[in-house]
Simulated assay, not measured.
Amino acid sequence: MKMAFVIFDGMTSMDFVGFYEAVTWLSILKAKEDVSWTFCADKAEITDDRGLKMKSDAVQPNLGDYDLVFFPGGLSTRTLRFDENFMDWIRTAEPVSYKISVCTGALLMGAAGFLNGKRATTNSSAYELLAPYCAEVISARVVRDGHTITGAGVTASIDLGLYLVEMLTNTETVLQVQQKLEYPYYQAGKLQDVYMPT
């Protein structure tokens, strides 16, 4: 499975890192074959919303060459969704099997047309912004509609990553990853389209 992690100026690093930490265990544990990942951006180096700089592996690659594309959020998504050059690049992910976002990364997926007719979630502060792009905004940690999966705000990225691990493997594997992360809040074995831990 070839994964593309889309990074961009003004993103929230916690949105990215929680998901990244969880799903890359698929490779470390050899839970799936041929797992690889690429940090993709619209330029060689990006700066997050607090000044952390990150280098990309690939500048504007064709996202359609990947099996999974992940979009983090951040305040900058509110303006990036109107940046036609940036969005033209994001739309190259159209044929990708798994399109995944957390927080306001859903605004990028929505503006690209990936949420048309689908249920989705985002940071609670952006429900009204997301509503025009999807069929229904759901208040939940994780929402899956087919192979399109969205997570709520910031720390939900960890839940989202664990959810995907369980979806792609099994409960035993996600429990192993959960233990590695020392994250007691994800409730394994509740793999439903709308994940709302109790």
Score class of each variant (00 low, 15 high):
residue 17 V to D: 09
residue 17 V to S: 14
residue 17 V to K: 09
residue 17 V to P: 07
residue 17 V to G: 05
residue 18 G to Y: 09
residue 18 G to E: 01
residue 18 G to H: 08
residue 18 G to C: 01
residue 18 G to T: 05
residue 18 G to R: 14
residue 18 G to A: 13
residue 19 F to R: 15
residue 19 F to N: 12
residue 19 F to E: 05
residue 19 F to P: 04
residue 19 F to C: 14
residue 20 Y to G: 11
residue 20 Y to R: 14
residue 21 E to K: 10
residue 21 E to D: 12
residue 22 A to N: 00
residue 22 A to E: 00
residue 22 A to H: 01
residue 23 V to Q: 06
residue 23 V to L: 13
residue 23 V to S: 11
residue 23 V to G: 11
residue 24 T to D: 12
residue 24 T to I: 12
residue 24 T to L: 08
residue 25 W to Y: 15
residue 25 W to D: 12
residue 25 W to G: 04
residue 25 W to L: 10
residue 25 W to K: 13
residue 26 L to W: 03
residue 27 S to M: 11
residue 28 I to G: 01
residue 29 L to F: 04
residue 29 L to D: 03
residue 29 L to C: 10
residue 30 K to H: 13
residue 30 K to D: 14
residue 30 K to P: 07
residue 30 K to Q: 08
residue 30 K to M: 10
residue 30 K to F: 10
residue 31 A to H: 04
residue 31 A to F: 06
residue 31 A to K: 05
residue 32 K to H: 02
residue 32 K to R: 15
residue 32 K to T: 04
residue 33 E to S: 13
residue 33 E to N: 15
residue 33 E to L: 06
residue 34 D to E: 15
residue 34 D to Y: 08
residue 34 D to A: 13
residue 34 D to G: 13
residue 34 D to H: 15
residue 35 V to D: 04
residue 35 V to R: 00
residue 36 S to C: 06
residue 37 W to T: 10
residue 37 W to L: 01
residue 37 W to D: 08
residue 37 W to N: 05
residue 38 T to P: 07
residue 38 T to D: 08
residue 38 T to Q: 05
residue 38 T to V: 12
residue 38 T to E: 13
residue 39 F to E: 00
residue 39 F to V: 15
residue 39 F to I: 14
residue 39 F to L: 15
residue 39 F to R: 05
residue 40 C to R: 10
residue 40 C to P: 10
residue 40 C to N: 09
residue 40 C to H: 07
residue 41 A to Y: 07
residue 41 A to K: 05
residue 41 A to T: 09
residue 41 A to C: 10
residue 41 A to S: 07
residue 42 D to R: 12
residue 42 D to T: 08
residue 43 K to G: 05
residue 43 K to S: 04
residue 43 K to V: 05
residue 43 K to E: 13
residue 44 A to E: 12
residue 44 A to V: 06
residue 44 A to C: 00
residue 44 A to D: 14
residue 44 A to W: 02
residue 45 E to W: 01
residue 45 E to P: 13
residue 45 E to Y: 04
residue 45 E to G: 06
residue 46 I to M: 14
residue 46 I to V: 15
residue 46 I to N: 00
residue 47 T to R: 00
residue 47 T to E: 07
residue 47 T to S: 04
residue 48 D to G: 00
residue 48 D to N: 03
residue 48 D to Q: 03
residue 48 D to H: 00
residue 49 D to Y: 03
residue 51 G to A: 03
residue 52 L to V: 09
residue 52 L to K: 04
residue 53 K to N: 11
residue 54 M to L: 14
residue 54 M to S: 08
residue 54 M to R: 07
residue 54 M to A: 11
residue 54 M to W: 08
residue 54 M to C: 15
residue 55 K to Q: 08
residue 55 K to H: 07
residue 55 K to F: 01
residue 56 S to N: 08
residue 56 S to L: 01
residue 56 S to E: 01
residue 57 D to A: 03
residue 57 D to L: 06
residue 57 D to K: 08
residue 57 D to E: 06
residue 57 D to F: 11
residue 58 A to M: 14
residue 58 A to R: 11
residue 58 A to D: 12
residue 59 V to M: 03
residue 59 V to W: 02
residue 59 V to R: 04
